[in-house]
């Protein structure tokens, strides 16, 4: 493992080449690698084995908490803390509480979806080594990048460089940490 190096990055001009390269890198035994694309590529999830995400479970929990909080608030205020007798009608008039409970459920789930996605992705992140590669600016336009990280046990700067070069990329560059 080399000091001051985050990893090695290969640039591709075609999304198919990137997916093939990612699959080959995993077959070669690399584990700490990531692909960078200008749009979501479903095939990469499979090539990089990205199947599990906790996000849907978090969103479900967020929604349930939101709904319970909304319903609980209405129950507590109208039945316990501030009961108003309107012609002897029941205080616990739960059907009237449904709209607000529903909105609170959506609010809880929606906030969790957004904050959860950002949190699990580690965003906002002001600095990341991949931006040290000048050509990486094209990752948000029309280029595709594969980065093998230096923390990978199999990483060796010369050997990995050779491996990436054999995948016929447009360019291989070193990513400074």
């Amino acid at each position: 493992m080399s000091q001051g190096v985050y990893g090695l990055m290969a640039e591709f001009g075609d999304v198919g080449e990137l997916v093939t390269a990612a699959r080959k890198a995993r077959e070669a035994g690399y584990v700490h690698l990531d692909a960078y694309t200008p749009f979501p590529v479903e095939e990469l999830d499979e090539a990089l084995d990205l199947h599990h995400t906790r996000l849907p479970m978090l969103v479900l929990i967020g929604g349930i908490i939101g709904g319970l909080a909304g319903f609980g608030l209405q129950y507590w205020t109208t039945v316990i803390d501030y009961p108003i007798n309107v012609g002897g009608r029941p205080l616990f008039s739960w059907p009237a509480f449904i709209p607000v409970t529903f909105e609170c459920t959506i609010l809880g789930a929606g906030l969790t979806a957004v904050l959860g996605m950002l949190g699990l992705n580690g965003l906002p992140q002001p600095y990341h080594p991949v931006f040290n590669v000048p050509r990486f600016a094209l990752a948000s336009r029309d280029r595709f990048f594969l980065c093998i990280e230096a923390r990978d046990p199999k990483f060796d700067i010369d050997e990995t460089w050779g491996f990436l070069s054999r995948l016929q990329p447009r360019q291989v560059s070193q990513v400074d940490a």
């Binding site: 692909a35 960078y36 979501p40 990205l50 996000l55 789930a109 996605m117 950002l118 906002p124």
Partner: peptide, 21 residues
């Protein structure tokens, strides 16, 4: 942009969040 870099891992969660929303 909060440091968005188009990582495949990020896109994976992003697509999930977008679909859920």
């Amino acid at each position: 942009a909060m440091g968005w870099r188009g990582s495949a891992r990020h896109w994976h969660r992003y697509e999930m969040a977008y679909l859920l929303l």
